[in-house]
Design a binder for these strands. Structure first.
Lengths: 343, 343
DNA sequence: TTGTATGCGTTATCAG
DNA sequence: CTGATAACGCATACAA
């Protein structure tokens, strides 16, 4: 009962026509008699014919498959983006293949990383918040080889098309909000520098403080977007003689870690210390207290990224553009007025 | 400067040999003079040759690519498994392609779902906790077509090889622990039924209660493994005249939701109500209070699943086996003695 | 409107 | 030990 793969030849034989006619009937290109077309389609359906993707690729034609390269699979944030992109792609009638470009510490990524996908996919989406730029150079060198769109990339040095949130304005709004609440000692928990997103957020934070005449009170702690790092960083901040009254984390996960550290120290959020995140991951609404944060419009970002990629596949000659979507300050329960005593 | 793809022909020309010699030198199969081999390898490296995967597939040879089909990309748990599998596969010198088999509500999955991967991959790993069995039937019907291994599947009706944790014993240990702490009203928050994992856990829960003569006190609330569902379910439980003193959730995310609901009601975990999860996702150690849970050995599971898949690729004729790895009760801070008043 | 022949990059077969 | 040739499944000129 094991069905051997069905090819155009099988369909052609059974339908009593040539392979060419089958090909035309299925692709819709070229002239085929309506009656013949129906016959072929019926036989194809009956036999359960599905085109061999590899043969298509080899022939150089479109596969209707898009690729998504990520620098990590262990971050729930990336998982969320992957899920959204996957849905958008499916809705466009295409398929999506995901590839983890992360290289193991003891096993450097081979030069053919990505070759894999490049062969099979019509175009590639790159979500690489954890990758050094060497990977990117690989794609920049041959832009006409395969269409590419960067997601959430924040540095200006690339010639590739980009879709991202407005990290700078988002961070400005967040910092301004904390100032309005009366906070004067606001710490910033930074993330990894790879995509430049953390720097953009830090810049927004610093600029707003500077404009309020508080440049000297800026305190930036290095981090890596991980929850446990946020925990450790917050512990160190709390151990200071004059701990901050508010913590602005470069992402939600570090904010979660910071909240845990604060609670573990016997302090309350937001009564004793306010915490503000960035991203608005799903968990932000479920933790206690619910996290105030800057929302990145991931649904829009995914939508635009896929749209832009498809556009580039169909019009490879157009200029690369950068799409920046607005971030939005979402106020929940983790931010509150600064303690009068602490001002 | 755009590099056109380098083929064996290019290498052959530059090395002054035939394509066949190049193929042999690179694959290591067949006789090639040592000196010729070195020459070819040098030229291949110089030209940056990488084999065309599609051509390999078309020819029917191994691709050294494994596929991972998941039923959802939005669950952090699956994301975790994906990451681990990805690492194991990389370490084996192979590559991994991930495909989201979830079908959109308004766009049913086309019949060629999976055809895609089946063509390109030597074998497939299936992680389908959210899929009805129709998808599975697809693979069972033609097991010799492409080697397949199921991950975390708990029903006995399949002839395919399976790797999973011991859900039943894990749930037994968890329930027994709550009984030892003095709890007598223990509620169980169930998940989706698709893989049978929730049922296995529920069975362990019911059996231990029955053996303690408490079968009548079993209370099972339907859920779907989602955090918000855990929240809602816990709220309903708390609204009862005699709320449970302990909640055993079929997974950690529902446990998180339950903890949030308890805290939002002004009660404390574990002083007023104990909460116990299942899975031991990373967040379980970071939430407050840290979650007691049943650890699924995902690292081992991933390792074994990949190992088993590779074994089946290389020896397709062997009998399908089921590997069940032990779960482990991990006690943290979310479980404590039952309130004397509530017993 | 339909059929024939060719090539994409690889590897297996078989001859040299 | 090495090389020419065919074949995998599909789509495209081109011919009929």
């Amino acid at each position: 009962m094991s069905e051997v793969p069905v090819t155009v030849i099988d369909v052609a034989k059974k339908a009593g026509v040539s392979v060419m006619t089958v090909s035309r009937a299925l692709s819709g290109r070229g002239y085929v008699a309506e009656k013949t077309r129906e016959k072929v389609l019926a036989v194809a359906a009956e036999l359960g014919y599905a085109p061999n993707l590899s043969a298509k690729v080899l022939k150089g034609s479109r596969t209707n498959v898009l690729g998504l390269m990520v620098s990590s699979l262990e971050s729930p944030l990336i998982a969320d983006i992957i899920g959204k992109v996957s849905n958008v792609v499916k809705r466009s009638g295409r398929d999506l293949l995901i590839y983890n470009a992360a290289s193991l510490p003891d096993m450097p990524s081979r030069p053919d990383v990505g070759r894999l996908l490049r062969g099979v996919c019509d175009g590639l989406l790159l979500v690489l918040p954890g990758s050094p730029d060497s990977q990117l150079a690989f794609f920049e060198q041959s832009p006409e080889q395969v269409p590419v769109v960067l997601v959430g990339y924040c540095r200006s040095e690339t010639a590739l098309p980009v879709v991202r949130a407005d990290n700078y304005q988002g961070a400005r709004a967040a910092t301004a909000h904390l100032l309005e609440l009366g906070h004067r000692r606001i710490a910033f928990l930074a993330g990894t520098p790879f995509t430049g997103q953390s720097q953009a957020r830090e810049q927004g934070y610093r600029d707003v403080l500077a404009e309020a005449g508080l440049a000297a009170s800026a305190q930036v702690v290095d981090g890596d977007f991980q929850q446990c790092t946020g925990y450790e960083a917050a512990r160190r901040l709390l151990a200071q003689p004059q701990p901050p009254t508010a913590i602005f984390a470069a992402n939600d996960f570090m904010a979660f870690g910071a909240m845990d550290a604060i609670k573990a120290s016997g302090l309350r959020v937001p009564e004793d210390i306010s915490v503000l995140g960035f991203d608005d991951v799903q968990q932000a609404s479920y933790v206690f207290p619910r996290l105030s944060t800057v929302r990145q419009p991931f649904a829009d970002i995914s939508e635009q990224a896929v749209r832009l990629l498809i556009q580039r596949i169909e019009h490879p000659d157009q200029e690369a553009q950068t799409i920046e979507l607005p971030s939005e300050l979402v106020l929940r329960d983790s931010t509150g007025p600064a303690l009068a005593a602490a001002r």
